[in-house]
Write a protein that binds this DNA or RNA. Structure first.
Lengths: 355, 355
DNA sequence: ATGAAAGCGCTAACAA
DNA sequence: TTGTTAGCGCTTTCAT
């Protein structure tokens, strides 16, 4: 905050020769009757003196900050893109969004950031299905500040008002079908147990896909966190392949980073992609389209997810004005799906699965 | 902000049977004499009632918010990593950092975000060498709120108190030398004119490297923004190569994304990397270590850059307490380099340059 | 060692 | 149509 005294509405009132209440009314474009002359005078004074509203004072007085807080594990990749979209969306509905990165999934940092946000009296909180315990969250958030989660499955509604989740179940199902269509008759999933909830969704999707096959196909999976290097992971997959008819093995990886690591390891060992392996990742990171071979992936529609996060939030905040700007379809979808909204994923087929 | 009335120091004062001034003193651990009994009572009341400080009220009263604002063009890649590090560093020195993504380098959004931050009365601003004009920035920031820039070359000190810049000049020089050492005797730089300032630094570095060679080597460059597809870029490079002795061509790309695109295009056309091309990018994105072949790149020490950004900021804020936590070397470096601090880059050699 | 009171800049009744 | 005034929750002299 600058040392030199900033211009306040008192200064404007003085300059324009009106009261501070009038200044406030003009500046906030309230729907009270005012002479256009007064309006002009005030606006001119504001312009000339370089007035800039002090939102802290306004929030304090109004008891509403029009500020939202968001917690992500990192700015990298999907989370960063989502944060950007939520920030943009929030703006469009008249709110601001402060994003904090929790340095991975560290519960301690998470807690501290949540606390900071609450001290700032944000109107609402947006978090991922966090590392924190539900108990700690409940206590921290308490009643009063609505919490909207993303990618959180099975959270009680008394703590979060709702969740907007990427539909990994259907998405992974589609990957399996795609791989089958591309000729793969055995398939391996590379999981990540450290991200349990979201890993689980993927596994369910893969299972569903497998069960819907016209013919049973061999499958396996592993937990990449259990191996120190990607080459060990590859060794596991090779073991799975060995003895099997030399058809291409389908690979589904937890995310694009893991999947691309695997692909590179395979290429390094002389395998061909596509050919020996048909590989698909999840996230549709920019890297997937510029690597070689380009990698099939599941695109996560962050803009849509952001839209529904805001929808849920504005409902909780009871902001009718903002709410009226949503499309009928969005409102209907939210209404239909309740407090756990599913966001459909989009498969982006590329060279790595033979297209 | 929650509907239900939150606990205030008035409540605590009542519960503890003391005045609000005393509560404030206890809660802020001020160095005024207080009986330990009072302290206990107040702290207990705070605990029991679940008190949470209202920082807006505190900032308003104190006329200092301990909040910093940062503007980045996106959360993706380098900028996201830097934002994360600045956020962490700011915390370590007792400040909070709100990061806004300006959706690319759009001057309009940039301006709006800057304005929002100023309305929040942040104590200081941290921006990249922005798309905005210096004039607009000067007007917007005005006097009073210190502005620290990163990756901004040649900004007048009357608008920004300083800049912390990545030393692309020396970094690119080193890449050139590395490529020479790896056997490349002709070299091509893939630039990006849309990011003029930072592109320019790279070009200077490449030139320096070229001039320092033990023997003159052929070189060329282009502006990738002038081509619609990466294949056209490749065609240009092929033209440069043609007729030249079949030695490997060194490629330095503006950033890892562009560079990896180029590498993939080359591989797709049947070139070998390393072999036909020795390729090095800039940024050391995670993708560089997991692509195949792994790509040489320049690592940008974001933690160090963040450290110096905060150092400059705290100097401007005159925060002696925080300043005293910096190491002697940091203080000395800042002192020596003045208002434009250089951050050295680190070459990370990988397979793509034949190591 | 503790408290009373005057702000900080703005909003929102309520009066005029 | 405009002005008066009482807060919002906290910090900070200055008394006591």
């Amino acid at each position: 905050m600058s040392k030199k005294r900033q211009v306040t509405i008192v200064d404007l009132a003085e300059a324009a020769g009106v009261s501070i209440a009038t200044v406030s009314n003009v500046l906030n474009r309230r729907k009270v009757p005012m002479s256009s002359e007064t309006i002009r005078k005030v606006e001119q004074a504001a312009e000339e003196l370089g007035y800039r509203r002090n939102v802290m004072a306004a929030s304090l007085s109004r008891k509403k900050s029009y500020e939202l807080g968001m917690l992500v594990p990192s700015f990298e990749g999907y989370y960063g893109r989502l944060a950007e979209d939520v920030q943009r969306t929030a703006h469009a509905y008249g709110y601001h969004l402060s994003v904090f990165s929790a340095a991975g999934f560290d519960p301690e940092i998470e807690k501290r950031h949540l606390d900071v946000l609450l001290q700032r009296r944000v109107d609402g909180l947006i978090c991922h299905g966090l590392a924190m315990s539900q108990e700690a969250t409940r206590q921290l958030v308490g009643v009063g500040t609505p919490l909207v989660l993303f990618n959180a499955w099975g959270w009680p509604t008394d703590i979060a008002i709702g969740a907007v989740n990427l539909d990994f179940v259907v998405g992974c199902d589609e990957i399996v079908q795609h791989l089958y269509a591309q000729g793969c008759r055995n398939l391996f999933y590379l999981g990540k147990s450290s991200l349990y909830a979201t890993d689980r969704q993927r596994r369910i999707g893969v299972q569903n896909g497998l069960q819907g096959m016209p013919e049973p196909i061999a499958s396996g999976s592993l937990d990449a966190d259990a191996f120190a290097t990607i080459d060990e992971v590859l060794a596991q997959v090779e073991a799975f392949r060995s003895g099997r008819p030399q058809q291409p093995t389908g690979i589904i990886g937890f995310d694009d980073v893991l999947t691309q690591s695997f692909m590179s390891a395979a290429l390094r060992k002389g395998y061909r992609v596509p050919g020996d392996f048909l590989i698909a990742g999840i996230n549709n990171d920019p890297a997937t389209s510029i690597c070689y071979p380009a990698m099939t992936s599941l695109a996560l529609p962050t803009a849509m997810q952001a839209e529904f996060v805001m929808l849920l939030m504005l409902q909780a905040l009871d902001d009718a004005a903002a709410l009226s700007q949503f499309s009928q379809e969005s409102l209907a979808k939210a209404d239909k799906e309740g407090h756990e909204i599913q966001i459909p994923l989009r498969l982006v087929p590329r060279r790595s699965t033979g297209v």
